[in-house]
Every structure is written in C-alpha cells, then in structure tokens.
C-alpha cells in the first residue's frame, strides 16, 4: 500500500493486523473466581488472612502483606458505584480485534460486604446517561450463556 503525499515522493507503508492465538491460564485463584461465576453465579473474592481486605480481581498474593490470600467470601451481588467512566472514544478490543460501539459506561462498584477498596469493574447498563452518578445502587446481572470468562457478567444494572 502506498501513502502518496501531495507533491512529495511516495512513502511506502505496510498495513496489517498482527494476531497471535493465546492460551491464558486462569491459575487456581482466578480459576476459582471464574468457575464460581460460571457455575453458581456468585461473585467470590479472596481475602488476605493478615489484613482482612478483599481482592477483586482475586490475586495470588496480598500486595500489602506479601502473604497468600487464601480465604474466600461471596460479595454482592448488589453494591454502589465508586467510580464510573462514560466512554465516547471507540477503541479496538485486543482480545477480538473488533472495534467497540460507543457510548458505553464502565463502572467500578463496591459490592456489599467488601472489606477494603476492591470494586468490581464492568459495564453498566444505563439507558439514561444523565442518571449515572457515584453512590448509585447497582446489581450484577449474569449472562444466560456462561463460559467461565468475565463475559459471564452481562453488566451492572441500576436498582430503581
């Protein structure tokens, strides 16, 4: 493909989509979270045995205490919006290479019973963007078909 500038010499450009298939391991910790999502429609967070805070996403080690976060507790499925982003900019999803449709709303919701600052991050179904605000009560809606990925959560819905 060429890239001719007015009057200037032709400058060669090569446009391509580079793609490499991946096998992403869940490991035991994220695996447990995703299995609970898929099989039981439960949001399970792991918990640091030392400082007691929850981790979402669940991670092997508590960064504050450098110990394995071995305990598990169910959180939500309701909670309150801690932060949100109304996205107008359309970007590619690097897991599929496809461009996302806009606008959409991302939200970080602190689920009920969460200890520490560990909101769950997902899409918010908000037909009226002007209603979105911090502190708004929301509920996790699970997808009908679930395959053990974050897509098993369809979105948050606003509790009217």
């Amino acid at each position: 493909m060429s890239n001719k500038k007015e009057g200037g010499p032709e400058l060669i450009v090569s446009r391509q989509i580079l793609s490499i298939a991946q096998r992403f391991s869940t490991g035991p910790v994220m695996g447990r979270f995703l299995r609970e999502l898929r099989d039981n429609k439960r949001i399970m967070a792991n918990k640091c045995p030392k400082c007691g805070r929850h981790q979402l996403p669940p991670r092997e080690v508590c960064a504050l205490c450098s110990v394995e976060a071995t305990e598990w507790e169910e959180l939500g499925p309701e909670g309150a919006i801690r932060d949100y982003d109304i996205v107008y900019y359309s970007s590619p999803d690097p897991l599929t290479g496809e461009t996302r449709e806009t606008p959409y709303v991302l939200c970080w919701a602190q689920l009920d019973r969460t200890q520490g600052d560990a909101p769950l991050w997902h899409l918010l179904n908000a037909p009226d963007l002007s209603k979105v605000r911090r502190g708004l009560r929301v509920r996790v809606v699970f997808s009908e078909e679930r395959d053990g990925t974050m897509g098993d959560i369809k979105y948050f819905e606003i509790i009217e």
Partner: peptide
C-alpha cells in the same frame, strides 16, 4: 506447559 498456573503464580 504449566497451564495450571498464571505467570504470577510461577513467580510467587
């Protein structure tokens, strides 16, 4: 193939 562990887990 350490499919059963994330790279974070291997490192830890």
């Amino acid at each position: 193939d350490k499919w059963q562990v994330r790279f974070q887990g291997m490192l830890w």
